[in-house]
């Protein structure tokens, strides 16, 4: 075989096909962008339609409120990129907040140890989720749904549905500390901290080998396995990460609410997390999206919730609207997928 012959063969690439598929990819991207544009417009409309939205106080408030949601959405992003889902994040968050408070109240440990207890409790539950999904090959939906039910039940049982407020003032002073970077505008330390978590997540996902493996597993787990990627370990790790994020969110929310209780992670919060992630462009089918989008999504979901609240729309109506938002995004994702053929 001469090289001449080889180049002769490859000199005729199917140019038209390339153009056509690129066009398809573009239209698929456009379809996926439509709901985001609509949502941003709705958010802007709400923002300007709502009195007092643009007060410095309310903006700070929205950002602080969005922080635990954003962190949990980042955890969910890791899981969803591999094609899984973790429905137990809010319940794990509530449970570990309770554990931390119990440790401080009953064992008399320092509040910082209480925080570490929260992180460890969340990691342990994430460990169970990950082990069941990755190594026992159980379906993520079922595993984490069961985890959610068990952990919520345990939380109610342990606390008798009573709020625990065992943390000392020092805990609140630290977590809710306000930086005075700009004269007259206090910035709660939670905001830059959340940004830091987001940046770490972005760097890991975009730059590390683990990040690449996540996308490979979410795109084609069989090809990933043939290529020598430790697929089980990758999937296992994502549930550890979502657990850890639930633990971090527990610390923030326990500080913001002033106490820990079984209903600090209500069912509706799962919906908010999933909405944030899919609004942020993570595909429920895996392999697409990233933490930046998830943080952006969390912000939008929080703004809509906050604005509807200020407009005195009832909680239940808000639920209906959020439910529609998720369905719309998944539908557009599915449509974009069909157009893009993958």
């Amino acid at each position: 075989m001469t090289t001449e012959k080889l180049t002769g063969y490859s000199a005729a690439p199917p140019r038209k096909a390339h153009d056509a598929t690129q066009g398809e990819a573009l239209s698929s991207r456009l379809i996926r962008a439509i709901p985001i544009v609509v949502l941003v417009i709705v958010a802007i409309f709400l923002v300007f339609g709502v009195p007092n939205f643009f007060t410095q106080r309310n903006i700070t408030n929205v950002l602080v409120q969005a922080a635990p949601l954003a962190i949990m959405a980042i955890g969910m992003t890791f899981v969803m990129i591999t094609g899984g889902i973790d429905l137990s994040i809010p319940s794990i968050m509530a449970f570990s907040a309770i554990m931390g408070n119990l440790a401080v109240r009953d064992l008399g440990v320092h509040w910082s140890v209480g925080c570490i207890v929260m992180l460890i409790a969340a990691l342990l539950l994430g460990f169970i989720n990950g082990y069941a999904v990755a190594y026992l090959k159980m379906i993520p939906f079922v595993v984490t749904l069961a985890m959610m039910t068990v952990v919520t039940g345990a939380s109610v049982w342990i606390t008798n549905s009573v709020s625990l407020a065992a943390m000392p003032e020092a805990f609140f002073d630290v977590v809710l500390y306000r930086l005075q970077l700009i004269e007259g505008i206090p910035i709660p330390v939670i905001i830059p901290f959340t940004l830091l978590v987001a940046i770490i997540a972005i760097v890991v996902i975009r730059g590390s080998i683990f990040g690449r493996w996540l996308y490979a597993v979410g795109t084609n787990v069989r090809a990933a396995r043939v290529s020598g990627i430790p697929t089980q370990r990758v999937i296992f790790s994502t549930y550890l990460i979502s657990g850890l994020c639930a633990g971090i969110a527990a610390i923030i929310l326990a500080a913001r609410l002033g106490s820990a209780s079984a209903n600090m992670g209500p069912d509706g919060m799962v919906l908010d997390i999933v909405s944030s992630v899919v609004v942020g462009g993570v595909s429920i089918y895996g392999g697409v999206g990233g933490p930046l989008g998830a943080v952006f999504g969390a912000l939008i979901i929080q703004i809509i919730g906050n604005s509807l609240n200020l407009l005195e729309v009832s909680y239940y109506t808000t639920l209906i609207i959020k439910g529609f938002v998720i369905v719309a995004f998944v539908a557009f994702d599915s449509l974009g997928r069909r157009r893009g053929n993958g």
Binding site: Y215, A216, T219, N220, R222, A223, A224, R225, V226, G287, V288, G340, G342
Partner: peptide, 11 residues
């Protein structure tokens, strides 16, 4: 199975 086990097609 090139498509099923070889490639990450959208990537």
């Amino acid at each position: 199975d090139r498509r099923g086990e070889g490639l990450l097609l959208p990537m």
